[in-house]
Design a protein around this nucleic acid. Structure first.
Lengths: 234, 234
DNA sequence: CGGCCGATTGAATAGGGTCAATGTTAGTGG
DNA sequence: CCACTAACATTGACCCTATTCAATCGGCCG
C-alpha cells in the first residue's frame, strides 16, 4: 500500500465503486484502473482542489465529502457553478483549452481520487466500458445543468435544488429526507441566482407550510409531493 | 456518391472540416470517419431532428443552418436549452439514459451530418485524436453553458448572449458584427430567462445608446467595447 | 391583398434584491 | 469547561427591475 493511499480505499474496496467510473469493468480492468489513480487525498474545508487558470492535467472524483466549483467574474464576484458529491467527476472544465475555467474548493473534509487525464484516455481506448462510462457521466452532468436555470420563480428553483440534492444523496445510499447541507445560504443563493436572504425566507416559508424542517445546515424533507409540485410549477 | 449525400459535402470537401470533429485526423482516418456518417440531410425550418423521449442512437453535427434544442416542462411550457450553429454537436443529452432529454428543431433550412453513436465510439477508440476532440467539444460546451446563467441583470445577459453569438459566428468564418438572428425574441428571452418584451426593450435601449442596430432578425453590432462592458457588469 | 404571427410599446404590478439590524452557533483560546 | 467572537442565518422595510397584460404595429406568406 503506497503511503498516499493509506487513508482510503482502493476501488476494489470502495463501497461506491459499483456506481463509479469503473462500474462496468471486470476485476482485472478494475485493478488496472485503480493503478491509474495517482492519489486519494483528503482535503479540508476551504482547501482548493485546483484553481482557475491552473493547467489541466487530471480529473477528480469525490469519494466522500462535498466540493463546490466556482468562477470569478471580472468584477471579482464569485459565481457558484456546481456542488459535487461522492461519485461525481470534477475538472472537465479544463479540457477544452488545457486550463481550468473554474476553481474547486472543499465544503467539508473530503476524500478525492485523482486521475491523470492522458493515462485515463489511453486506458479508455482499450476499455470500451470505461470510455462509455466517461461519456455517460459527462452527459448526465450536462443534462442536470439545465434543470435549475430553467425555473423562473425563486420557490421553484429552491424546490428543484432540494429535490436534486435529495436524489443525488439517495443514489449514493444516503437518506433522501434527512441530510446536512454542506454549503451556506450564500452559496445556495449564488448557485440558484438568488440572494441569500431570499433563500432564508424561502426555507422559512417552506417550513411554515410544513414542507420541511430546517435548522441551519440540517434539513428534513417532509412533503416530497409538495416539493415536486413546487418544482414543476416553473 | 450515395443518394442521401448528393446535396452535401464529404468531410474532405467541407470548408469547416478543419474545425470539426475530424480536425486532427489524417487523410486516411478522415476518409474512415466520413464513412461513419450515415447521412447528411437537409431539414427545413420547424422540422425536428429528434424529439424528447426518443431513443438515443446517434449524434448530429450542424453543417449549415441553425438548430434550437428545448425541453417541455410538466406544465407544458417550453424551455430553450441551446442554439446550435455549424460545427456544433447535438444529441449528447440522450447518452446518459439512452433516451433524448430534449427536442431539437431547425430554426431555418439546415444541413445536418448524422453520426451513429456506437460506431463513432468504436472508431474513437482506435483514433485517439478523435477521442480527444470529442471530449474537447463536450467540455467546451459545458463551459459555455455557465456564462449566461451567471449574469443577474437582463442587460448583462443579452450583451453576453450577443457576444457569444458573435464569437461563435466569427469562429466559423462569418461576420462577427453583422448577422441574422435565426431565432425569435421569444426564443431569445426564453433562453435567457427573460420575457420577450424585455428582450425587445433591451434591443431598443442598446440601439438608443448606439451599441447596435437591429431590424427584426437582422443585427449589426457597432460598439463591442460597450457590449463587453455591459457583459462583464454582472 | 388580406390575415396572422412576431415585434414593439405602454402602464401597472409583483417578486426579489438591497441595506441594515438582530439572532444564533460553532469554534477558539484561555 | 466556559466565555468570547466571527461568521453565518434570520428578519424587516423599502426599492427597483423585469413581468404581465393589453394594444398596436409591421412584414411575410399564401
Amino acid at each position: 500500500m503506497t503511503p498516499q493511499k493509506k487513508n482510503s480505499l482502493s476501488c476494489h474496496h470502495c463501497p461506491l465503486s459499483s456506481l463509479c467510473l469503473p462500474s462496468n469493468l471486470n476485476h482485472n480492468e478494475t485493478t488496472q484502473f485503480d493503478q491509474l489513480i495517482k492519489e486519494r487525498r483528503t482535503i479540508e474545508r476551504n482547501q482548493h482542489l485546483f484553481r482557475i487558470n491552473e493547467p489541466f492535467k487530471q480529473v477528480y472524483i469525490v469519494q466522500s465529502g462535498a466540493v463546490k466549483s466556482y468562477s470569478i467574474s471580472m468584477e471579482g464576484d464569485e459565481h457558484v457553478n456546481a456542488f459535487h458529491f461522492p461519485l461525481e467527476l470534477i475538472g472537465f472544465d479544463g479540457l477544452a483549452d488545457e486550463t481550468h475555467q473554474v476553481s474547486a474548493i472543499a465544503l467539508e473534509h473530503s476524500v478525492i481520487c485523482t486521475l491523470p487525464f492522458e493515462p485515463l484516455l489511453s486506458f479508455a481506448s482499450t476499455a470500451p466500458a470505461l470510455q462509455r462510462q466517461l461519456f455517460n457521466m459527462i452527459s448526465q452532468h450536462m443534462v442536470s445543468v439545465f434543470s435549475i436555470s430553467s425555473n423562473s420563480y425563486a420557490e421553484t428553483r429552491l424546490a428543484t435544488f432540494l429535490l436534486d440534492l435529495s436524489n443525488r444523496l439517495k443514489k449514493r445510499g444516503r437518506s433522501s429526507s434527512d441530510f446536512k447541507l454542506s454549503m451556506s445560504r450564500e452559496d445556495i443563493g449564488n448557485y440558484l441566482g438568488l440572494a441569500a436572504e431570499t433563500v432564508s425566507r424561502l426555507f422559512h416559508g417552506f417550513e411554515k407550510k410544513g414542507i420541511l424542517e430546517t435548522n441551519r445546515r440540517t434539513i428534513h424533507l417532509n412533503d416530497f409531493y409538495a416539493l415536486r409540485t413546487l418544482s414543476s410549477g416553473s
